[in-house]
Design a protein around this nucleic acid. Structure first.
Lengths: 114, 114
DNA sequence: TTATTATATAAGCATATAATTATATATGTA
DNA sequence: TACATATATAATTATATGCTTATATAATAA
């Protein structure tokens, strides 16, 4: 697999963003596609403002992109992020976070964002 | 390639450690084998206590191990670190740091630790 | 319009982090 | 022994971080 080597200056900020349990979980949840903010708050079991502030950091760094649909905002990994390959690789070393979403769904706790 | 998936709780601290330019450079320098503290200070161009404190963090987390030989202390990646595979993968996405050592050597600036 | 829901932002606070300076420890040598 | 070199630790300080509470904005519905 060909890969682009990153400068330390590019890689370190990406790793710093992922070096937080909340943000790493968010990134893991996005592995299989976009998620709505309410899903993050549900899975992470933390306050909405706190989640929103983590999302802002990821968004400011361009690690994720947002997509508003009606009153909901969906986030997804930004495949144009300079360290996108690194992010994918990191996520791949972490246990699957989509299970948590599926679990919510199974319990009927998944909020409808459609 | 088989790999062990890490819990978020294991991966995040490792990424946090690597999410700092100084420590990421140190880890990158260790990709091809052990390095002496004086080599880190030389390459990083920062104070000895500062380097030493970064090394302590890496050591406390067991990401690296130390090996004293005479008055010199050599550090290397700890292949038994729980997130060792992740560390290797991350380092592999970063530009080669051993070039900096080679450059030092070429300039005759490499300190002799033998 | 007003009310409701989803999300974002701001302000405040407690803790964590990284650097500096000074000092301590360990090893080697005269 | 005394001194030099390599490294570690401690204390201090400035800045960054993450959370909470309160409030603002945006979209939708009544």
């Amino acid at each position: 697999m060909e890969r682009t080597r990153l400068m330390i200056e590019e890689a370190a900020p990406a790793l710093k963003l992922l070096g937080d349990k909340t943000r790493l979980t968010i990134a893991g949840m996005l592995k299989n596609g976009e998620c709505c903010v309410c899903e993050f708050t549900e899975v992470l079991e933390m306050s909405q403002p706190s989640v929103s502030q983590h999302l802002r950091k990821l968004r400011d760094a361009k690690l994720v992109k947002e997509n508003r649909r009606g009153q909901w905002v969906f986030y997804s990994l930004n495949e144009n992020y300079e360290a996108y390959d690194l992010v994918l690789s990191v996520i791949d070393h972490v246990s699957d976070q989509s299970e948590k979403l599926q679990e919510l769904e199974k319990q009927g706790k998944r909020i409808q964002c459609e």
